[in-house]
Write a protein that binds this DNA or RNA. Structure first.
Length: 127
DNA sequence: CTTCTAACA
DNA sequence: TGTTAGCA
């Protein structure tokens, strides 16, 4: 598929997809006309990249990590990278705990709220 | 119309 | 990252 389709299927802008390639995160072949061509696996790969970016990892770390995730690209984490990943893990774990606190706060409000009109209506129709 | 590269009111 | 320019 070309960049437009990959963009639609991942929700990532073509601009960002080209940026990922520039950072060595996403590979592509070229058509005779010089347009980027991606295989079907590119979709999940981009999702993974997005996920890691969202977790706060920088492109450089992601660049080294991806080959280890997709073993086909050959790679076991270098000692240096491993230390880096442990630090990131600690940071992400702390971030998750904070998110869970927010989740709990929202759940408390949601669970105590009155039934919504839509649900009440459905209940009325049901009987 | 879509993509490409390079560069910035 | 968006966006724009000028091509292919």
């Amino acid at each position: 598929m070309r960049i437009g389709e990959l963009s639609r299927r991942t929700g990532v802008s073509p601009r960002s997809l080209r940026y990922y390639e520039e950072q060595g995160l996403l590979a592509s072949t070229r058509t005779a006309g010089g347009h980027r061509e991606y295989g079907p696996l590119a979709v999940e790969r981009v999702d993974r990249i997005q996920c890691l970016f969202a977790a706060g990892l920088c492109s450089a770390t992601i660049h080294e990590l991806l080959p280890c995730i997709y073993a086909q690209e050959r790679g076991d984490p270098a000692p240096d990278l491993l230390d880096n990943l442990r630090e990131e893990r600690t940071r992400i774990a702390a971030s998750v705990e904070r998110l869970e606190r927010s989740l709990a706060a929202l759940d408390a409000v949601i669970d105590n709220a009155h039934p919504s009109p839509a649900i009440a209506h459905a209940g009325a129709e049901r009987g």
